[in-house]
């Protein structure tokens, strides 16, 4: 919007659970997802953003103009100062953020670092499909202290068959080049790989192919879907069984070959330790999005539910991030079990499952106060992890260095 008012119509449906009675106790945002570019050079067949129900991206500028980025940096610093934050995360996202240029991403990140108060660390990451990564661009990102997260569905061409460009050509050759370049030349910049679970693929083969890319971390994301638009292949616990198979391969490896966020956060929750993932648990959610026109929105995954689901009506030119904290959708994700369906609140897995991903709870006419469409799959996976952890707890002690007692 570059200084003009937001023009999106207010969505006809909100569907967020009402804030429970009592004083407002919003947590500040600490994660700022900045849409450096709103288009993508790929056209993945399952993309919830470009192939989903929400098409607001069509009305927005392809790249974030300079004034939007400048104002966003100021708003982030303002929020950090107001809440005395010691750490904030800046996630450079898209679309494909590298379409904006590595220099633009570096300049923006530098601007945020210059404007936040002294003592506030800025953790910057770019999330890319890896096809545009070159040695020169990676050097620019590394110099700016921007880590690189990569989106891939496995470590082979077959695994990535749904990740194609706008002409239908496979993205894998370019993505593989980019991923290996990060792993081999810029390992200190390598944040990890995000993979959308495809239950038609062999789970262990997929996991092992990803290990070949040497990621320091992986996350396995359930495909976005909900009760009104169920994800493909839902039923017969295929997603849950897929996760269990990978968990067993990871758990029994004899060494931690890579960090798997979903698995490790599940272990944390089972043991009563702090955890933070959208997929599990009851931790308050503290991320907010700035679109290429400066609109302040909720996270993109909500757009898989219905058109305008992420809309707030706010923008960085006229509003502070504090005003976004009062949006009912933001508030609902900070109230823990109070925002969940009665069935979830009565479930013995509540503190671990947490109702699953917020977007997966949606049902037209019922809003978001429902169990996850993946409820049965999550139960299968969580109980499986709990059983493995219980069995491990019965093992004999050994030395911390792995030697014999």
């Amino acid at each position: 919007m570059s200084g003009e008012a937001a023009t999106d119509p207010a969505p006809a449906v909100l569907g967020h659970p009402a804030r429970p009675p009592g004083p407002e106790t919003s947590l500040p945002f600490r994660q700022f997802i900045v849409k450096a570019h709103g288009r993508c050079n790929l056209a993945c067949t399952y993309c919830y953003l470009y192939a989903g129900p929400d098409s607001t991206w069509r009305t927005r500028p392809p790249a974030a103009p300079a004034d939007v980025l400048d104002r966003t940096a100021t708003r982030i610093a303002e929020h950090a100062r107001a809440h005395e934050l010691t750490d904030v995360a800046v996630v450079l996202h898209g679309g494909e953020p590298l379409l904006a240029g590595a220099d633009t991403l570096a300049d923006f990140t530098t601007r945020v670092r210059e404007r936040v108060p002294a003592g506030c660390a800025v953790h910057a990451t770019v999330q890319t499909n890896a096809t545009l990564l070159t040695e020169e661009r990676l050097a620019v990102l590394a110099e700016a202290g921007i880590r690189v997260g990569i989106s891939l569905d496995g470590g082979t061409a077959a695994h990535n068959r749904r990740r194609v460009d706008h002409a239908g050509r496979p993205s894998w050759p370019a993505a593989a080049r980019g991923a290996l370049l990060v792993a081999e030349r810029f390992p200190e910049s390598y944040a990890g790989v995000l993979t959308v679970v495809d239950p038609t693929l062999d789970p262990v083969e997929t996991y092992e192919s990803l290990l070949a890319l040497e990621p320091p971390a992986l996350d396995l994301l359930l495909p976005h879907g909900n009760w009104s638009a169920p994800p493909p292949h839902l039923g017969d616990l295929r997603h849950g069984d897929w996760l269990c198979a990978v968990f067993d391969r990871w758990w029994a490896a004899g060494r931690r070959e890579t960090r798997v966020r979903l698995f490790e956060e599940c272990v944390a929750l089972l043991l009563g330790l702090p955890a933070s993932t959208e997929a599990l648990g009851l931790a308050p959610f503290d991320a907010v999005v700035v679109e290429t026109d400066g609109s302040i929105e909720q996270v993109d995954s909500l757009k898989s539910a219905y058109p305008g689901a992420a809309w707030t009506g706010l923008d960085v030119f006229r509003h502070t991030f504090d005003e976004a904290l009062r949006h009912p959708g933001v508030a609902a994700r900070q109230t823990g079990a109070a925002a969940l369906a009665a069935q979830c609140r009565a479930c013995p897995l509540l503190r671990v499952c947490g109702g699953g991903h917020y977007a997966h709870r949606y049902r037209a006419g019922h809003g978001f106060q429902n169990p996850s469409v993946y409820c049965a799959d999550l139960q299968r996976f969580i109980r499986h992890a709990a059983a493995r952890l219980t069995a491990a707890a019965a093992l004999e002690p050994t030395q911390r260095d792995g030697g014999t007692p």
Partner: peptide, 21 residues
């Protein structure tokens, strides 16, 4: 086959946004 009870590095910032690291 859901009503059965589950028995209570792992840390420093916890970043909960799943569509990145």
């Amino acid at each position: 086959d859901s009503d059965e009870p589950l028995d209570l590095e792992l840390r420093e910032m916890l970043w909960g946004f799943d569509n990145s690291f």
